[in-house]
């Protein structure tokens, strides 16, 4: 099914307990000036690349856990404490974020 997250992103729900990476858009907009779901990431475990929007996001948890769509490794975690957003991207080698040409 498709639902719309607060913030306007369309999120595709699956029966497997996760949603697609568009679920990251709203929470990460609190700390990023751009929509990072369009960024291209590289998995530190299997090396595959793709947009963050394709990651598998487990959100029925104490934080958001985004896993590689290919190998299932944790690529990104985001948690919201009382006064901070914690972002762990140790499972991603890089993130290419589209910006305007210089």
């Amino acid at each position: 099914m498709t639902s719309v997250e607060p913030g306007g992103s369309e999120v595709n729900d699956t029966d497997a307990g996760y949603v697609d990476g568009n679920a990251l858009a709203g929470p990460l907009s609190e700390v990023f000036a751009v929509d990072v779901t369009t960024a291209t990431s590289r998995c530190a475990n299997c090396g595959c690349t793709g947009p963050l929007a394709r990651l598998r996001v487990y959100k029925h948890a104490p934080g958001l856990v985004a896993r590689c769509q290919q190998c299932g490794s944790v690529m990104l975690r985001a948690t919201r404490t009382r006064d901070a957003v914690w972002l762990d991207m140790s499972g991603a080698v890089s993130l290419a974020i589209p910006v305007g040409e210089t």
């Binding site: 104490p62 934080g63 975690r77 948690t79 919201r80 404490t81 009382r82 901070a84 914690w86 762990d88």
Partner: peptide, 22 residues
């Protein structure tokens, strides 16, 4: 897993130790 992502190292609910620094 969660202790490295902002959650409390011990996690006593009666002292509401949810996050690091609580």
């Amino acid at each position: 897993f969660w202790e490295t992502a902002g959650y409390h190292n011990y996690g006593d609910p009666w002292r509401e130790q949810r996050y690091q620094g609580d």
